[in-house]
Nucleic acid binder design. Structure first.
Length: 428
RNA sequence: UCCCCGGUAGCUCAACAGGUAGAGCAUCCGGCUGUUAACCGGAGGGUUGCAGGUUCGAGUCCUGCCCGGGGAGCCA
């Protein structure tokens, strides 16, 4: 099987390819048909003398997104997009396509999202989703190489992980269950069993958020490591981000080109990252005239401002405990401060990582459940982790779509997932 | 939930101050021997989101509803 991706290996040879018609152009006695096979796009050239009449005719008549079989000789030619083209010998129609809705001109967002199942065939979406696949592979390779074990957390859960967030409720054999909003708590159990673990999967938030940073279904990779403290986990997150960016730069050059991404900014993503405390962040914001007080969480504008401060991701740590989840360990010297961290991607992208050191003291944790107004019963198993050999441990979650959106420099994270789920949008 | 913007041909949009609904792309027909969202000529294509109101006359003004976009809040 020959794929367009590797077409350069067949220079001068006759090949047969299957693919969908991406575009066609004609100029009298020369016709150009661009076909895509899922790995790339290749231009085929039809000249009247070198091809039979039926094929030449078809090269003019064939419609966008029809499936065709193409025979021809691979030739290097600078005029061809991609550097190689096919001198066509024969074209066969395998399956026709009529009135393909996504044409060569512009379309609106609503229309494209209604046709997402077809939109993913187009060049830019193709590039983004291939980068997404690389980002995911990079996360997994990085953690696997570091000795982390993949232990997936359940999607159906008996209760909220953090209590506050709105959850999707499902009927579970006449009992209530909820779609997971984080694998975090299960990860902690797994960390005690396997040392260093991670889970990777979809998470769900039933918030009525309508912004470019939010989806109701999104993917996270969540490492959790025993014996690691806050600053160990910050280091791990930094290394992981550097690794992801490096891998995309190395393996997805073409896709970044399609997206016209300025790669010099990405090449700059090396350690160390700038690190500031929450207190410093507040000070910087207040200096700029933001109306924000100590104890407030950052809003969208604040996050954008902070993430534009540096060319590298910005590490912000020591958030007020009340901004963070009940399971965050507190600073010994000041229990108002949690051992927590967020990492904001640069170029205005905002938070891609959130994490911290977990409370390992049973009494403290019991107190927190009460403080946060959470029922004890569904968390019994979680408390057990502190009863049977409690251990220092930390972890974080990295949002896949936000990371992909940043690396691809796309405006809205809905394009960073194959089939986005948003408020009022669950089709296709 | 709130604020702002929008809904006109398959798609993207235009239509002055209320006066015969129009262009590009797509489709179909024709032309062009290297096109790069190719280009050039021609043709077909409309319940102006829905319901009501004002008016001699409504795409345009008013009211309600529906749908979408951007943002806020909330959140990762």
């Amino acid at each position: 099987m020959i794929w367009i991706e590797n077409i350069g290996n067949y220079e001068g040879k006759e090949v047969v390819l299957k693919g969908w018609v991406y575009n066609k152009r004609s100029s009298g006695k020369v016709r150009f048909v661009l076909i895509r096979d899922g790995t790339g796009i290749l231009q085929a050239v039809f000249s009247a003398q070198e091809v039979d009449e039926n094929s030449f005719d078809l090269a003019d008549k064939v419609t966008q997104e029809s499936l065709v079989e193409l025979k021809g000789i691979v030739r290097k030619d600078e005029r061809a997009p991609g550097g190689f083209e096919l001198v066509a010998k024969e074209l066969k129609l395998l399956s026709s396509s009529e009135n393909y809705p996504i044409t060569k001109k512009e379309h609106g967002v609503d229309f494209l999202l209604q046709h997402r199942h077809l939109w993913i065939r187009s060049r830019k979406q193709f590039a983004i989703l291939r980068i997404r696949a690389e980002v995911i592979k990079a996360c997994r390779d990085f953690l696997d190489n570091k000795g982390f074990i993949l232990i997936d957390a359940p999607i159906l859960t008996p209760t909220s992980c953090e209590g506050t967030t709105t959850l999707f409720e499902v009927n579970y054999f006449d009992r209530k269950a909820y779609l997971s909003q984080s694998g975090q708590l299960y990860n902690e159990a797994a960390a005690a069993a396997f040392g260093r673990v991670y889970c990777f999967g979809p998470t769900f938030r039933a918030e009525k958020s309508k912004t470019r940073r939010h989806l109701t279904e999104f993917w996270m990779v969540e490492p959790e490591a025993s014996f690691m403290e806050l600053f160990d986990i910050i280091e791990l997150a930094e290394e992981m981000i550097v690794y992801i960016v490096e891998r995309v730069l190395e393996k997805r050059k073409k896709e970044l080109e399609i997206l016209e991404r300025d790669v010099s900014l990405l090449s700059n993503i090396k350690r160390p990252f700038p690190r500031i405390t929450y207190d410093e962040a507040i000070k910087r914001l207040q200096e700029k005239g933001f109306k924000i007080n100590w104890g407030d969480d950052f809003g969208g504008d604040e996050e954008t401002f902070l993430s534009n401060l540096y060319e590298k991701p910005l590490v912000i740590y020591y958030y007020p405990a009340k901004c963070k989840a009940f399971y965050m360990k507190r600073l010994k010297e000041n229990p108002e401060i949690s051992l927590s961290v967020d990492i904001l991607a640069p170029e205005g992208y905002g938070e891609i990582v959130g994490g911290g050191q977990r409370e390992d003291d049973l009494k403290e944790l019991e107190k927190r459940l009460i403080e946060y107004n959470l029922p004890r019963e569904p968390f019994e198993w979680y408390l057990d982790l502190r009863k049977y050999g409690s251990f220092i441990h930390s972890g974080f979650g990295l949002g896949i779509e936000r990371t992909v959106a940043w690396i691809c420099k796309i405006k809205h994270i809905r394009e960073a997932i194959p089939f986005p789920r948003m408020l009022d949008r669950i089709y296709p």
